[in-house]
Design a protein around this nucleic acid. Structure first.
Lengths: 166, 166
DNA sequence: CTTTTAGCTTACGTTCACGTCAAGGTCCAG
DNA sequence: CTGGACCTTGACGTGAACGTAAGCTAAAAG
């Protein structure tokens, strides 16, 4: 089992992003620690292992998670938040450790990476559109609210229906 | 059944975004038309109706979708792409047609809108991070590939099995 | 007039992503 | 040495989001 090329290992990626001021630089984690840190259940972590998303070592029976495992988990949860399935996430993670440096393999990987990027860009645009829409609506509602509040303060009388757009 | 206030109806929102040069300004759609347009199944549309996401009128037995229904469907699919559950989406859609103009209701709605906005912003940031990460990786892999190709061109030795696309 | 097309309802099946017991192993404090 | 705390592997259950098949109606097309 050649541990392969591993272009960029997640240690680097996540450890950079996750630089901690405090001195907690633990190299290994138990399943319970990770579950608590990322607010998921033990079952979930075992399930992810079952699906090949994480590969913790063993100390006897017990799972031992490296920083790499932890970083991968982080990516998994990120992926989930933005709507990817676990299998999609596994495929994406697998791209990170290509099994060899064959030229054709690299080409395939590149294509898939780029594909993934455009998917993500589309997704981001969708979200931005949604944000814009919501913001506009917020503005309108806020205006309406101020108006209502003014009315309410002014006349303590009857309420008439004020609008009907359709 | 007072059809209520409906602060911003989706007609406006989506019709703006969806301004078509051609003159196809159909006011009503069949289930099949919508299914084809948005590339989903009839079952899906009926399912969404069951879940209260869309409310087509009926012509006898047959469903008749208005532009409003169509716009809502669009929002549903957008929501799905960015990882929301159908119930979350329904809640968000419900915010669009508030049942009355009570001040407290408006306040509640405003809060939920703003909450939704920050969720979306977080999501967008996640995605942007992922894109950045992937782009960096692409750069690295592309460099590696160029290097490999150069090596290969240099020594015209043996042809080892070059492909295996499983 | 039959067949195709499009739609309907009812209802069971499926996949994903876990939840929830059940039944037990290991180690440490009291 | 006994009770927690923490871990293990099954295995069945569950909610979400549909798929799929069966059997019916109504209209259009050949």
């Amino acid at each position: 089992m050649s541990e392969a090329l591993s272009i960029l290992n997640e240690d680097d990626l996540a450890d950079v992003a996750d630089f901690r001021g405090d001195g907690s630089r633990k190299p290994y984690f138990t399943i319970g620690e990770l579950a608590k840190e990322f607010d998921c259940t033990l079952r979930t972590l075992r399930f992810y292992e079952d699906k090949g998303l994480i590969n913790p070592k063993r100390d006897g029976m017990n799972r031992v998670y490296s920083r790499r495992d932890r970083a991968r988990l982080k990516l998994v949860l990120m992926g989930k938040r933005v709507g990817f399935s676990l299998t999609e996430i596994r495929d994406m993670l697998d791209l990170y450790d290509l099994k060899d440096g064959q030229v054709t393999q690299l080409r395939v990987a590149l294509n898939r990476f780029n594909g993934q990027i455009s998917v993500l860009e589309k997704q981001r645009d969708d979200i931005e559109q949604a944000i814009a829409e919501l913001s506009r609506t917020v503005a309108v509602v806020a205006g309406l609210l101020r108006q209502k509040e003014a009315e309410e303060a002014e006349s303590e009388g009857l309420l008439s229906a004020a609008s009907a757009l359709d």
